[in-house]
């Protein structure tokens, strides 16, 4: 899922202080799971903002809506009828949702309410770690299911660098060396022969370095 973290309330206050009618728009998908932008977080932020502005003697209309998703046309259309009641939207969706909302409601300022961090997994409640960089050309089949693109600081593809020490990465002692993990896993799977295969230069054009990307699937288009 896409992992996001809450933005400090002060930052959001600074963005919306000039607006009188504000919609806090949550998303029921990834940001709900990572407890940054779901219905509950929308409620907490809206309540906090209402109290803040009331205390400043500047009462504002702050409403709450949480959509199923903010990255699909049909769900974003659900606020079409009420959108003209507001001066601004604070979207608690990931960066995709914020942008898609802004594209659909052109005359409306849309502010981000979370910091979108990475594609990751829930290690335990309250701990999320990066697992994928969406490089567009998955190599997990050759690396024992552990991604050196997202989990190795140098994104190297043929074994660890000289900075790997006792299974940890040189950039931070708390970060596992991805290549140590890969070798351990290949050993466990009795596939160490795969480690001998030299991975040739990866085609990074499918990654962000190739500019903004697009997936077109004619088979599912209508």
């Amino acid at each position: 899922m896409i992992v996001a973290d809450k933005k400090p309330i002060e930052e959001i206050i600074e963005d919306i202080k000039g607006c009188d009618k504000i919609l806090i728009l949550g998303c029921n998908e990834c940001v709900t799971v990572c407890e940054a932008g779901g219905k509950k977080e929308v409620g907490i932020l809206a309540s906090a903002l209402r109290m803040y502005f009331l205390n400043k003697g500047n009462e504002k209309k702050i409403d709450e809506i949480t959509l199923e998703r903010q990255c699909d046309h049909e769900y974003l259309e659900e606020i079409r009828d009420v959108s003209d009641q507001y001066d601004a939207i604070v979207s608690l969706a990931c960066g995709v949702g914020v942008q898609f909302t802004a594209e659909k409601y052109l005359s409306m300022p849309v502010y981000p309410g979370v910091n979108t961090c990475f594609l990751g997994a829930t290690e335990e409640r309250g701990v999320w770690t990066e697992r994928c960089q969406a490089c567009g050309q998955c190599i997990l089949s050759t690396t024992g299911g552990i991604c050196p693109v997202s989990r190795c600081a140098k994104r190297i593809l043929n074994g660890p660098c000289g900075g790997s020490s006792k299974g940890k990465c040189e950039i931070n002692k708390e970060i596992e060396c991805a290549w140590q993990l890969i070798i351990d896993r290949l050993n466990y799977l009795d596939r160490m022969d795969d480690y001998e295969n030299v991975y040739e230069i990866k085609d990074w054009s499918t990654e962000r370095a190739g500019g903004p990307r697009k997936v077109i699937r004619e088979d599912v288009q209508v």
């Binding site: 309330i9 002060e10 907490i44 906090a48 903002l49 109290m51 803040y52 205390n55 400043k56």
Partner: peptide, 8 residues
């Protein structure tokens, strides 16, 4: 923390 931020 939130209540400190919003002045309550």
């Amino acid at each position: 923390k939130i209540l400190d931020t919003v002045g309550v």
